[in-house]
Design a binder for these strands. Structure first.
Lengths: 108, 108
DNA sequence: CCGAGATATATCGTTCGGCGATATGTTGAT
DNA sequence: ATCAACATATCGCCGAACGATATATCTCGG
């Protein structure tokens, strides 16, 4: 598997409620505390890819104040993927910090 | 920044003591509990790249039982990068799990 | 003694994905 | 009237991981 950080945040942004493309950009920036600023070129490409993989699906379309909003929603499989990826990253971070801790302790 | 999982594990494997290329492969497999099986094509390319970025440097060369071993070591900057990336991944995993928890709670 | 598999390094072409640029149109503020 | 924010979409470039391939030595089993 091994998902990109961008894809991971797109999926995470969709946890709980469907969102439209541009809305995802803002949500990802907030979720990541500004670390990830999604580019539109990345977003729509990723959305298509994730849809093809069955992690995301089209929800509905709305016209709000003349602007089209195309909503996407997380599938069951997508929610599983977020959970799995979060666990993976948690484990990765753990492994690295444990190593760094041990090394610093031996060099105190 | 946003480092790849492979690069992250290569750097993590070098925390504490220098290792040679092939040794890194095994160490990464162990560190990641089998999740990441580094391919040699990835390894040497990544090692060159990380060296160019100053995160890793050449240590020494050994000839052990007729086989050449080229050792690499983590630089100060490389150690900082591992720590930063670990923190980033920890934060990412946290953000996602918090969201998943909240969502599950509301749908109990 | 021979062959297979592990150890060890190196290179090359393909492919996938993120990024920057660009395009198009609307709304709201100045 | 113009400019920023909102909103979607596409395209080409490039960096990076991967699979394949090559070379060479050592060890172990048959």
């Amino acid at each position: 598997m091994a998902m990109s950080e961008q894809a991971f945040f797109i999926l995470t942004a969709l946890v709980g409620e469907p969102r439209h493309g541009y809305g995802i950009v803002g949500e990802v920036a907030e979720l990541s505390e500004g670390r990830v600023k999604l580019k539109v070129g990345t977003l729509y490409g990723a959305l298509d890819r994730l849809t093809a993989e069955g992690l995301v699906e089209h929800d509905r379309e709305e016209v709000l104040q003349g602007r089209l909003r195309r909503y996407y929603r997380l599938t069951r499989s997508g929610a599983d993927a977020v959970a799995a990826e979060a666990a993976r990253q948690h484990a990765n971070a753990e492994a690295a910090t444990a190593r760094l801790r041990g090394w610093q302790a031996r060099h105190a």
